[in-house]
Amino acid sequence: MDKLKAIVSGYYGKGNAGDEALLLSLLQMLPPSITPIVLSANPTATRDSYGVETVPRRSLFPLLKSFRESDMFIWGGGSLIQDVTSFASPFYYLSLMGYAQKLGLATFAWAQGIGPIKAKLTQRLTASVLQRCKGLSVRDCASAKLLEAWGISCILAPDPVWTLSAQPVKQVWEIRAPRVAVNLRPSAQLTPERLEHLTRALIDFQKATNVSLLFLPFQSDQDLPLAQRVATQLPGAYQILSLQDPRALKGVFRGVEMLIGMRYHSLVMAASEGCRCFAISYDPKVKQLQQELNLPGWDLTELPDDPNLISTVWLKEYTNGDALELTQIQSLIDRAWLHQQIFSIQQGACL
């Protein structure tokens, strides 16, 4: 039987380590009978990094050609369908999926985090498109409940990045121990005042513990300037590691004691490697993950005004906090592979 071609659409080629990790996780779950064609903002980099065929995600004629030549369309994970951070983004992804369905391609929504969706029009369009999918999996309970309210069945499993293999990073072990990782990202809720409180708290925390602080930008164009701004005010040892390979980023957490993290996948990677986590939530998906894993943390909007209180709480977690149990980590990894099941019907769906 000839191989099936599948267009894979997501937030790829944008330099976001979380989305690149999702792409890697998807590629390892695809059956050998499926050849992926990845829509990317940087097709050359995606092709060179992962050895896959790529198409520019916003070039009309190459896109149309890839649709005509394909059998399947896959939404490749993450919070693609939400209108909190971008009103236009869900329409881009919905349009691609709708066009694929119009052409008769078998469509799959893989490892999605759906919502929040505030606009009624977006809700109706999303429900209509998802109802016509051949297979659908989501990564959190809130998404599953939303689909249930729409009368749509799905597979619920942890984020696929739990399954991603980590690569050791030699330079981490060259940094003086003990080490604590920090991941910050810009957000409308991260006001200058709150950033100042976090910076002051990191200074106090480092003085109290004598740790080396390891800053991990997950999207360099956004996170790196913020890391540099905070790190240069520290009294002690620090390093900023800008790593492109998500497997290496995940490997960093094998050499640190704790993560203070904002980005969703920084927390997933750290927790999966047995690292203690403290979440700073800027988005409902982070809050959802925090609740499901019972991680300590704050919403940015509830961040204490007192840097001393913040550092004291961090110190308590650093001294007495616990990482996830190994049995819990293995259970999350095993269940994350359930996302692969939506492809078990792919041959019949595409005949």
Rank of each mutant, 00 (worst) to 15 (best):
W150N: 08
E174W: 03
A149E: 15
E196I: 01
P192E: 08
E174S: 11
A188N: 10
S153W: 03
V180T: 08
L190M: 03
V169F: 06
H197L: 13
I155W: 07
G151L: 09
A157H: 11
L146Q: 15
L164M: 10
L195I: 10
Q167A: 15
I203L: 03
I175W: 09
V172G: 06
N183M: 04
S153N: 14
T191W: 00
S187E: 05
R200L: 11
G151E: 09
E174Y: 08
N183F: 02
A157V: 13
P178D: 05
I203H: 06
P186H: 06
A177F: 11
P160N: 01
N183T: 07
E196H: 12
L190Y: 03
P168Q: 12
L156M: 04
R179G: 04
S165T: 14
L184M: 04
R176F: 09
K145T: 15
P158V: 05
Q189T: 13
L202V: 01
L184S: 02
A157L: 13
L156E: 12
N183R: 00
E148A: 15
R194G: 05
I152A: 08
S165N: 12
Q167H: 13
N183A: 02
R179Y: 07
S187Y: 06
V169T: 07
I155H: 07
K145I: 14
A181S: 13
V172W: 03
A166T: 00
E196F: 06
E148V: 01
V161Y: 01
L190W: 02
G151C: 09
A201G: 11
D159L: 04
Q167S: 14
Q171R: 09
W162Y: 14
Q167L: 15
A181V: 07
R179I: 06
R176Q: 15
L198Y: 04
L146T: 14
A166I: 00
L147K: 02
S165Q: 13
L198P: 03
L195K: 11
P186Q: 07
I155T: 15
H197E: 11
I175D: 03
V182E: 04
V172D: 06
V180P: 00
D159F: 02
K145H: 15
E148L: 07
